[in-house]
Amino acid sequence: MKVTFTVNGRPTEADDVWEGESLLYVLRERVGLPGSKNACEQGECGSCTVYLDGDPVCSCLVAAGQVQDREVGTVEGLAQGDTLDPVQQAFVDAGAVQCGFCTPGLLVQTHDLLNRAHHPSDAEIREALSGNLCRCTGYEKIMDAVRLAAARKADARDAAPTGLEG
């Protein structure tokens, strides 16, 4: 079957999709976006996390046909050109990336968290990221990265002009 959807703002079409395929497979193997990772394909690791109509979901558990006419956002869409999103930059800076296989999913999930909660507590961060397994870091540097990203985003908000010049 054919599936037409939007990825990172771009209209996209995938042809010859087998009906049992996942969104993850379509992204990785058919539309050239292998950034979302395939660590388990059973919803347990979060490495495949993408936005689906604005909500982070495991793309391995979304049937390809279910994204027809919908909007998908992947890790590849987080940066603005060469400018990394603050979440991406914080993961690099804090040493939260080792093998990096968990990273794309964690970035999307953290991005969503910090959109919803500007100053999350440690417990909130842990609850929000509890569906993203990382086998390398022991999560300490990931916690650092999320706190760093939250602080930098707060600084950026403070620095942003609040007048009418908009």
């Binding site: 979901v57 495991c58 558990l61 509890s130």
Partner: peptide, 9 residues
Amino acid sequence: VGSPQIRNR
């Protein structure tokens, strides 16, 4: 239930 991602679906 599962994780936030699972709960979103």
